[in-house]
Write a protein that binds this DNA or RNA. Structure first.
Length: 205
DNA sequence: CCCTGATTCGC
DNA sequence: GCGAATCAGG
């Protein structure tokens, strides 16, 4: 494959939008991420600054001091950034307790898609009135025992992003198991994250 | 191990 | 100009 005008433009567009070299390579096809990076450099649009870094998986390196070579370069492109199906309607506050011990601890399983809490710092008591299949829950608790327990930076498109534990504690990590194609979570967590949305809506609004 | 971009250098 | 190999890093 060669760098036709079209391909170069798509490259520029995607790079500006903050897509990673590998993602661009996939999209273009016929080229590796190395090819993309090489081209990007030759085109002189290496540092893609602008308020919108790619919050995808890994935080792109902070622009490094440009060799006062090129002055007239890309203008800041503050794009909102809309890529990947990063959609994540659910907002699991924390995972279920791993312990099978009925401690008077507030086990918070809150995969509700509420607009989060108004503005409280501490999480107020959430009346998790959910109806997740008991089977799914059991599965989750089981999976959490074997979870990879990876850190934020270790998350990739292939690792389950289900949070486990209290973010305010050292005892916090992400599941990290292989995700289900397309989904952000592993099979077990997809089970509790994406519900049929049938379970009776609130009696009324 | 997964991934990221940066650089080098033979072609 | 091109991009694989390699490097440096999260």
């Amino acid at each position: 494959m060669s760098w036709t005008d079209e391909r170069v433009e798509l490259l520029k567009k995607m790079w500006t939008e903050g897509q990673s070299a590998s993602q661009i390579a996939k999209e273009l096809g016929g080229v590796t991420r190395n090819a993309v990076i090489g081209k990007v450099h030759r085109l002189g649009l290496s540092n893609r600054v602008g308020g919108a870094p790619a919050p995808a998986a890994a935080a792109p390196a902070p622009a490094k001091p440009a060799p006062a070579r090129e002055a007239a370069e890309a203008k800041p492109a503050p794009k909102p950034k809309k890529d990947e199906p990063q959609a994540d309607p659910e907002r699991p506050e924390a995972a279920v307790e791993v312990e099978a011990d009925p401690a008077p601890r507030p086990s918070n399983v809150t995969p509700l898609r509420k607009p989060i809490v108004p503005a409280g710092q501490p999480l107020p008591p959430q009346p998790s009135a959910n109806e997740i299949s008991p089977e799914a829950l059991a599965k989750v608790q089981e999976v959490e025992k074997t979870a990879k327990r990876i850190s934020l930076m270790e998350l990739t498109e292939r690792t389950c992003k289900w949070p486990i534990g209290d973010p305010a504690t050292e005892d916090f990590y992400f599941c990290g198991l292989p995700v289900q194609q397309g989904k952000p979570y592993c099979e077990a967590h997809v089970g509790v994250a994406f519900q049929p949305m049938s379970s009776r809506r609130d009696r009324r609004r």
